[in-house]
């Protein structure tokens, strides 16, 4: 059982707040990502929830109980750090069982729970190994097992994958997701890697400039950003300013008005100046036709699965991510911008 509620939480050191007025609720068994650029105070938020850092103001509730004054060791919150931070003088099994030992759980019961958790995290048979004999990925799994064996109300993960190489990271992501789902552990994790946050979490809270800018499902944040900074964070560089008339967006530089998607409620936006965001990978290179626009390729960079094109369309510059590596700089391409690619940012 684990429900986390943060109300007007101010986090920081001394009198300097790094994160202001944080409101967040994490439901039982939910996995929420705190996403944001490095140095944005994400680790400090986790430390504050865990009780390692006193909050400047605001309340932290776990299962409905305010825990501001509760010592870290009594909060039933486990924080898994960026570094494994294993105890070098204990072996793998003893590390996993550390928390149980602190609770006075010894003998057969502890041994059974340690073995179970080692099995679950893919460490079966390594219990007697020394920490120094493990690889980085194995050490991080010991850290995870060491926390989960306590069946915490709340699991906090502080970029536990950032020190691992890409292959291992993918494995660990799947492991964390599987284990947390299986144990129904409420999890709040911190990441600066958007794909990690989008893939792992049920909901994402984007932290920009010391406050939560948008909170929602991964798809909402990615396809329906709340403002231009959120859009830019997720790599949507096509932001056009214009007017909405008759469910069509027109902008001074564009030769054609773009139809809005049918999902867009028109009442609030009709007749207003707005900014629309168009995801670069949703713009298609077409063979030509009635609704296509002719654009000139200004530059191009091959990025593997996709090719990034900078194109000029009228007086607008757009970025297109296309699976076709074909066009060359200076040539003309036909662009199709489907209505579903257009997202109108909420008007101020």
């Amino acid at each position: 059982m684990g429900i986390l509620e943060l109300e007007a939480l101010n986090v920081g050191y001394g009198s300097r707040a790094i994160v202001r007025e944080l409101h967040l609720e994490v439901a039982q068994g939910e996995m929420v990502a705190l996403l944001g650029p490095s140095g944005g105070g994400k680790t400090s938020i986790l430390k504050t929830i865990a009780g390692l850092l006193p909050p400047l103001s605001g309340t932290i509730r776990i299962n409905g109980q305010m825990v501001n004054q509760v010592a870290a060791e009594k909060r039933e919150v486990v924080l898994i750090f960026q570094k494994p931070l294993l105890f070098p003088f204990l072996d793998v099994g003893e590390n996993i069982g550390f928390g149980l030992r602190m609770q006075g759980i010894h003998g057969a019961r502890a041994a059974r729970e340690i073995a179970e958790m080692a099995e679950l995290t893919g460490l079966g048979g390594l219990e007697r190994r020394k920490i120094q004999q493990l690889s980085g990925g194995q050490q991080q799994r010991v850290a995870l097992a060491r926390g989960l064996v306590l069946r915490p109300s709340l699991l906090l993960l502080d970029e536990p994958l950032s020190n691992l190489d890409p292959d291992l990271r993918q494995q660990m992501r799947e492991l964390i997701q599987a284990v947390c789902r299986q144990t129904r552990t409420t999890t709040l994790f911190v990441s600066h890697d958007q794909s990690e946050a989008l893939m792992l979490s049920d909901r994402v809270a984007l932290l920009l400039g010391g406050s939560i800018r948008q909170l929602g499902t991964p798809r909402e944040l990615f396809y329906r950003p709340a403002d231009r900074e959120v859009a830019a964070f997720f790599g949507c560089s096509n932001l056009l300013e214009g007017v909405i008339m008759d469910r069509h967006f027109s902008c001074a530089g564009l030769p054609l008005a773009l139809p809005l998607p049918s999902t867009q409620p028109s009442a609030q936006v009709e007749g207003k100046r707005c900014i629309v965001a168009i995801r670069p990978e949703q713009i298609e290179l077409a063979g030509g036709g009635a609704d296509t626009l002719t654009a000139r390729v200004e530059s191009l960079s091959f990025e593997g699965a996709l090719t990034r094109l900078e194109v000029r369309l009228g007086s607008c510059r757009l970025t297109v991510l296309s699976p076709h590596p074909g066009p060359s700089p200076g040539s003309d391409v036909q662009l199709a911008i489907p209505a579903s690619a257009i997202h109108v940012l909420p008007c101020p």
């Binding site: 865990a50 009780g51 060791e73 924080l79 550390f98 928390g99 602190m102 609770q103 060491r146 306590l150």
Partner: peptide
């Protein structure tokens, strides 16, 4: 700190 969040 790690030990503390593990309940020590």
């Amino acid at each position: 700190e790690a030990a503390q969040t593990l309940g020590a």
